[in-house]
């Protein structure tokens, strides 16, 4: 039998909806094809708590918080061009406000969290506004410094419990509320952000990232739009912080810890920049890993940086983009 050479050939599945432009879906199989990965993701996430014990449910909650931060980071970096390394500031601002409202005014967490989300976002945005005119690396550096400032101020003034923090804050009603509140927050944020980036506002933000001169010449104030974008990311992050305070019933300077700034970035790069969902998935993988290595303390930051490096060098597109590409292609062997 003569041997024939064969090679692998990749073809794109021809579902029109993936192309830019306006097409209608023509069959149920196409609808399923498009919805299936999304449904698997959502249903998987929502049913996950049933398979986890108390401890791992907590880890899932933490992963959700990191997922929120990753969403905010990806949104600002990929769609607005602001590389924000200050995720910890959002957590700290949201966490302290919510915890203090609970400790001093005795408000219920379910009241504290929404107030802290909005108030924290306002404060974070105000703090970042002066830095908005900075470009690229300068914004990144300034945003990275704010959580550190906050820690020094709190320690120096012994304010808000100083280095000890404040403990015995109220928790959320029960563990199911805890876990589903954060899962809902992640899914809703993901859904709304994905909508937003395709709306006019998202288009303008992306245009600012691409070419801010042409946006200015089009009569649009880029500062106003950047402020709105930062506020949105801050809302998401501050919710995470407020929630975290009541998850652990405690507030302290480690809310401004570097983990909250670095892990979400590693998660986003792992999952794929610009995919939004990628960062959430990255956080779901990285957080348990980080939890399992709790014994190593601050050394874990080295681990995040190492994972970050590996992905940047070997898989810069991230795993979500990789799987997306594979899902949309099929392979066959052809004779040559």
């Amino acid at each position: 039998m003569p041997k024939t050479a064969r090679r692998k050939k990749r073809l794109d599945r021809s579902v029109k909806v993936r192309t830019e432009g306006l097409y209608a879906l023509t069959s149920w199989s196409e609808i399923t094809y498009l919805l299936l990965p999304r449904l698997v993701l959502i249903m998987g996430l929502l049913s996950l708590p049933f398979f986890l014990d108390m401890y791992w449910q907590r880890v899932l909650c933490a992963a959700g918080i990191y997922g929120l931060l990753a969403l905010g980071f990806d949104f600002l970096a990929e769609f607005v061009g602001l590389v924000c390394l200050g995720g910890a500031f959002f957590i700290g601002a949201g966490g302290y406000i919510s915890g203090l409202l609970n400790a001093y005014l005795g408000l219920s967490p379910l009241v504290c969290i929404p107030i802290a989300t909005v108030a924290g976002a306002v404060i974070s945005t105000l703090v970042l506004v002066p830095a908005l005119r900075l470009r690229g690396i300068y914004f990144a550096i300034v945003s990275f410094m704010f959580p550190l400032f906050a820690v020094y101020i709190i320690v120096a003034l012994s304010a808000f419990g100083g280095t000890e923090g404040i403990s015995a804050l109220d928790n959320l009603p029960n563990q199911w509320v805890e876990v589903y509140l954060i899962l809902a927050a992640v899914l809703v944020s993901l859904f709304l952000l994905r909508r937003l980036v395709d709306e006019d506002m998202g288009l303008i933000l992306r245009a600012i990232k691409d070419n801010d001169q042409a946006v200015k010449a089009s009569g649009i104030s880029i500062t106003t739009y950047k402020i709105r974008a930062v506020f949105i990311a801050a809302l998401i992050g501050c919710f995470g912080g407020a929630y975290l305070t009541h998850l652990y019933g405690w507030l302290g300077i480690s809310l401004f810890g570097m983990d909250f700034s670095i892990l979400p970035i590693a998660a986003t790069v792992m999952g794929g920049m610009g995919t939004l969902a990628g960062g959430v998935l990255g956080a779901l993988l990285l957080t348990p890993l980080s939890e399992a290595l709790r014994g190593f303390g601050q050394l874990r930051v080295v681990l995040y940086c190492f994972i970050l490096l590996l992905f940047i060098v070997y898989k810069p597109e991230g795993f979500l983009s990789y799987f997306q590409r594979k899902y949309h292609q099929f392979e066959l062997w052809e004779e040559v």
Binding site: L203, G219, I220
Partner: peptide, 9 residues
């Protein structure tokens, strides 16, 4: 879409 979202328009 960008100029069409300006205050002037």
């Amino acid at each position: 879409i960008i100029p069409l979202n300006s205050p002037r328009v």
